[in-house]
Amino acid sequence: MSDSLSAAPSATGDAHADDHHGHYGVPGYDPIASRMGMWLFLFTELLLFGALFIAFAAYLSKYPTYFAEGSGSLNVPVGAFNTVVLLTSSLTMALAIAALQRGDKNLSIKMLNATVLFAGVFCVIKAFEWGAKIEMGIYPGSATLAAMDQGKQAFYNMYYTMTGFHALHVIIGAGLILWVKKRTLDDRVNPKRLVLMENIGLYWHLVDLVWIFLFPLYYLIA
């Protein structure tokens, strides 16, 4: 996906550029088009999570007290800590791009490593949170959950679905960052052609953006 978006040469190049990169119709590097494509792709991700937030809002309005109760059962300090982890990973991602823009490949790689590390920390903490709930017998399809009130069931079903989808995106994002790191090491992503890293950065920030909303909506409505 990102490969095609960033690396596919446009067939006619940048027809509008004052300084033609060649004569008409010769492939060229068009970072603006690539970022545009990436943003359009991000909109689909946004709407995908957006649909889940609509479902969340619908059930919140149907079962306000059960959702408050459910929210109370989640661990706020852990959630807040995870928020800090993800925000920091967003910072390191942004710094990785900024460093490469300045030609500092070394720092850029370090920052990418840090981003992946934070992604790992986030996932491990999330796994512990899920683990604690599963140990209490609260997971989709469990007898304990089935015995609960319908509003509670709706809360936990939404909780597992949305945090699960988000965690999946964290894992995919981390994979993409590792991939762009390899390309940077090969110099295929370099200060002159870094739109691939920019695009994966955009993806990573979107993952962060989703969590910025997930955190208060799940942890802080008790």
């Binding site: 706020v76 800090v84 208060p216 409505i221």
Partner: peptide, 12 residues
């Protein structure tokens, strides 16, 4: 962003 995270926890 970190400060705002603190604020949102505090507000809750």
């Amino acid at each position: 962003l970190i400060v705002l995270t603190g604020v949102t926890v505090g507000a809750a």
